[in-house]
């Protein structure tokens, strides 16, 4: 089930090292982009069913690969005043101003203590480009839709409404998150207001 083109990382550190060591930081984006393109080309599977998975702490999450534009190492962001804690600020993505959201903070309220090993996934959601700060990229999975289970009411730190489902892969559990729901503009605005009050 799991994809071997990207290499199977056993733990988060390796994934981080992979991105850092193979290419200098500014080339990382191209590399990862090419990488995902190669994967798309080399495989005859339906790209719709491919998910990129990443870790936050010990938990593994997945998002459809087609929403991912590129993956970059952590870069300094410019904080936006009076926004929720999970908004890490904005960064310069080749001349575009892109907001970066801290997924850990969004799920648990606890800010990520960023290091050079942290990774930002640049995703395109409903015409907007956003950055998602995660601990590490883990894998690319081709997931059979039939095997996606509805999210149970477990002790996951993430609210069920942001989950598309759960999938078991090599005895790991991957939670498929719905990023557009997670950072729906209305919700963001609502939260900003709450924060301001």
């Amino acid at each position: 089930m799991s994809d071997t083109n990207l290499a199977n990382f056993e733990d988060d550190d390796e994934a981080g090292l992979f991105l850092e060591n193979i290419a200098p930081k500014n080339e990382t984006e191209n590399l990862t982009k090419n990488m995902s393109e190669n994967i798309l080309l080399s495989q005859s599977v339906d790209a719709d069913r491919q998910y990129i998975t990443f870790t936050i702490g010990t938990e593994e999450y997945g998002t459809p690969i087609l929403t991912v534009q590129e993956i970059r190492g952590w870069m300094k962001t410019t904080p936006l005043p009076n926004t929720p804690d999970y908004v890490r600020g904005v960064t310069n993505l080749r001349g575009n101003i892109v907001p970066v959201f801290d997924l850990r903070s969004r799920f648990s309220g606890e800010n990520t203590d960023v290091t050079d090993r942290h990774v930002v996934i640049m995703a395109e959601i409903e015409g907007r480009t956003i950055g998602l700060l995660v601990d590490a990229i883990s894998d690319i999975l081709t997931i059979d839709e039939a095997k996606i289970q509805p999210p149970p009411t477990t002790n996951l730190i993430i609210d069920n409404q942001y989950l598309d489902g759960l999938v078991a892969s090599d005895e790991r559990m991957v939670a498929l998150i719905n990023v557009s729901k997670l950072f729906d503009q209305d919700i963001i605005e609502k939260l900003s207001k709450q924060q301001a009050n």
Binding site: K76, T77, T78, L80, P81, N82, T83, G89, V90, T91, N92, G95, N96, I97, V98, P99, R128, T129, I130, Q185, I188, E189, S192
Partner: peptide, 20 residues
């Protein structure tokens, strides 16, 4: 374009060092 408006901020720009 990618986020929403922020009060007191009209827009962003990119400085010479690449920072926003």
């Amino acid at each position: 374009t990618n986020y929403t408006n922020v009060k007191g901020i009209s827009a962003a720009t990119i400085l010479g060092n690449g920072d926003v």
